[in-house]
Amino acid sequence: MYFEVNGRKVFASTGGKPFDNTKPVVMFLSGSGLDHTFWGLQSRFFAFRNYAVLAPDRPGHTHSEGPCLESIETIAEWLHDVVESLGIDRLSIVAHSQGCLETLEYVFRYPDKVRSATFIASGLATPVNPALIDAAENDPQSAIAMMISWGFGQAGHLYQGPIPGNSMVGGGWKIMGRNVPTALATDLRACDNYKNGKAAATSIACPRQVILGGKDRMAPRKAGMQLVEHLRQPELHIIENSGHMLPLEAPDECRSLLRDFIFANNPAS
């Protein structure tokens, strides 16, 4: 669906059901250069289990009007505007990679808004190799190739798909291809510049869940465990055979973990 935030058009997938803010809401936030389609194998499940689903494209990404937002802090404020403009009350956030930094900052600023927060494939910060930022700006196809290579584990590298006949790598390439050079480069710089993760994580009091990939090379286990440490005993799951793109590489495991966590902490009627 399209809606307006601060006078600009925003697109969000609603999981195949009309958005209804009287239901508990699950908001899915994607990683750098990605969009709503990243969450197809989780979002539709919740939409058909009496939740309202919102998987927005960040400003300047895929179907949402620009300009791109240049810092995690600005995106956190934009998320607040999204929540307010749609009248969202009972909110669970499910975030991946860059979306996790946005969630840390959003919950830090607006702690009363969130019933639960799930952090998938992230640490407290996401320092980005300058070569990747440079490639995103000047040689986007090379940047996508690097992210595809580092982002996926074996199944992705072998062009398998979570849906028979689909290619994770092929789909990921097309999604990021829509968001280069500006959106991807802006996202990567925003990640690289974000420094408030430690303070934000320590402040979060709502139920929190962390899901890490055992073969994640973009947010390695060591970085993920720093997030776990500062979130103070979150529910932790490590899916050993997955790379960074957990919602695609291990969609069923992710969905099951999300189901149990969100059903318990933000139940639908």
């Binding site: 389609t37 849906i163 006949g165 092929g170 789909g171 097309k174 999604i175």
Partner: peptide, 10 residues
């Protein structure tokens, strides 16, 4: 909306 780059195949 749901399948983006594989909408046609789906």
């Amino acid at each position: 909306e749901e399948f983006g780059p594989s909408a046609f195949a789906t």
